[in-house]
Amino acid sequence: MNRIEKQLVENKNNNIKSLVAYLVAGDPNMDDTLSLMHGFVDAGVDVIEVGVPFSDPIAEGPIIQSAHDRSLANKTSFEGIIDLISNFRKKNTNTPIVLMGYLNSFLKNQKAFSRFDDIGIDGVLIVDAPGEYSLKDLGISNANVVSISLVSPTTTKERTKKICNASSGFIYYVTLKGVTGSSNVDLEEIKSNVIDLQKNTDLPVMAGFGIKNKEQAESISKVADGVVIGSYLVESIFEAKKTTDYKKIYNYLSEIKSVINK
């Protein structure tokens, strides 16, 4: 069984809500990304989403966009990200890892894709790939890598079904109409949409885009199987860079993990 499936099923069976944390590979640099990943796990993160920087990230708000730009300015390459995951796996063989990025990066690195499971990459979330397409449809298949798709507030019932059928691992519910890190989340609407979504799938549902504080995380986790924190972490990593003290970030993540499991 794939690490993602194993971890999330285990959490669900034990009634534990999952915490998914995002960072951009190579921001501020690969060494820090590696130590942040280990720090995330120690703080209680269940799944790590590693952002693959792209020159034209159309779904990202200014915070993650800038992180992509900084990372590319550091000459982050796909091969460098593969090395990062290999290095992470030297110490950690359990925590699921998802690569989140844009289709062009994965198409250009098809060869590496077939080695993903050997390297220790468990899933991909391709922001601009239509959710009803399987990885095979896109020409980048690897039977041991799960394909996580987004469902948004504008997704119709008909599409939701198709997307759920083509997905594996978990479903990522986009909590707002907007780019990553926006601030207009409507908690009640999110909850009712997540409940509707769960009727279409047995896969765990993680909710994210714009979730920052403990209150939001706690409220959403009443219905979702977990929450995703992205922009807030990317911003905190950027701010901590001056001091390279990431303790505050780890404390924040532990607190989130505990409030969603209150």
Partner: peptide
């Protein structure tokens, strides 16, 4: 060609 966009836009394109 095709439609390679974030999910939020799929309904608008349809």
């Amino acid at each position: 060609g095709g439609k390679f966009v974030p999910e939020t836009l799929m309904e608008a394109l349809d």
